[in-house]
Design a protein around this nucleic acid. Structure first.
Lengths: 225, 225
DNA sequence: GCTCAGCCGACAGGTTCCCGACAGGTCGGC
DNA sequence: GCCGACCTGTCGGGAACCTGTCGGCTGAGC
């Protein structure tokens, strides 16, 4: 964990520095907007502690710039107790949090921990086979940057096959899993479905093939490029 | 966007409720820990406003429980000005932010916006997709210099779609996020809403299209100029 | 060369989606 | 309280799309 502190008061820099380092984190401290921008350009930080009133510019601009280039690094502002407008401006510029001076060390650490804990975006397990990918969250299949347009049934079928790459999926198993609760689909329905699926995949460089294992079922195999 | 307020003072519930709803968000308000846990079990919220001192239990336990089951829903605590220890306890339990009572409405809204913004994908102050823009601060949608006149529901829907540009938004998800606590909207209501939204966007050069993914949901895609 | 599993074009019934029309509800102005 | 403007949900018909059946054909396996 590496943090950046941007603060023009030397006294506060030392104070905060001691607290942060005491907690076991790495901290770089700078005093000006220019130095801050240089540091941010050269180094990936896990969190930025930012004083808004800097000698050579407005701290909110730093945040705005970060956000403009889609940098999600959390920013914790340090503001004076009274400056409500400043806080609002900072938050709307893209800062994640603020702390009013004077603050006590326990509170500083708690807030830093809260921001660092922030999950790196919910990542659903995305299925991959060859150049094919499937995102369960959105039910989307992708290949070479394109999104495949599949019917619900076709999607269900491809998902089952992808969860069994390299292994034979029994035809009987497909029948059971693709059919409705009571009315089960005929074997032929599966074949038709599969035929349509193959045709829809054909135009793409999927780097996989759906092979037929006569009398048993189907097998999704990764072919090489 | 759908928020949950847990607060035992009826006066504060009304006050906060008015502010939040006035900003165009949906809000469910409950007064006890039990009601809060029930609500959280039945509904996916985008943010929780949480008073720590509840008649039937400690608010930090609610947060701890959420986090224990890996629920990343942001939590904004409401605490008394003096209670520093309480704040630290809350943050360490997993809350994301706090607001000290009494607070003013502008600050409340700014912090709510800041927390909502950090959710999925973008932490941009202003959302952009194609030529469309959305300013969370004013709840205004703009396109080519013009301000779109949208109904609250339509705004909520477009905001969700814009926060997921390029990704499919599940129809079920829309239903859940756009409907009130108990009375859920029919799938048809979503379709009608979307139809109206499309019509209102049509006159503008938005450079985006709302595509239908049959059987799954909708996808806001950037088209090129 | 015979047989049968599998393939696939064509078709039809069912499902999902779109959207015009309508009505209940809400809110502000008078 | 009454009126009008607006928001939001329901209903229903039509269009688009999905999916199973049928039947002819092909080729694998014996």
């Amino acid at each position: 964990m590496r943090l950046l502190l941007v603060e023009d008061s030397a006294r506060l820099r030392d104070l905060v520095g001691e607290t942060i380092r005491g907690a076991g984190w790495r901290l770089d401290a700078v005093a000006t907007r220019l130095d801050a921008e240089e540091a941010l350009a050269n180094q990936q930080y896990d969190l930025v502690l930012l004083d808004l009133g800097l000698p050579d510019g407005d701290g909110t601009d730093i945040v705005r710039q970060l956000r403009r280039r889609k940098d999600p690094t959390p920013v914790l502002m340090l503001t004076a107790r009274a400056a409500i407008d400043e806080r609002i401006a900072g938050l709307d510029a893209g800062a994640d949090d603020y702390l009013t001076k004077p603050f006590n060390n326990g509170e500083l650490l708690a807030r830093v921990r809260a921001l660092l804990r922030r999950a790196p975006l919910s990542s659903d397990p995305v299925l991959v086979a060859g150049a094919l990918s499937f995102d369960p969250a959105t039910q989307e299949f992708g290949c070479a940057g394109a999104v495949l347009r599949l019917a619900p049934r076709e999607r269900a079928m491809l998902e089952i096959l992808m969860r069994n790459v390299g292994r034979v999926t029994l035809k009987r198993g497909l029948e059971e899993r693709l059919s409705e609760y009571d009315a089960e689909a005929s074997a032929n329905a599966i074949e038709v479905l599969l035929s349509r699926l193959r045709r829809k995949l054909a135009p793409y460089p999927t780097q996989v093939a759906i092979e037929t294992v006569r009398g048993v079922g189907y097998l999704l195999r990764e072919t090489e490029a």
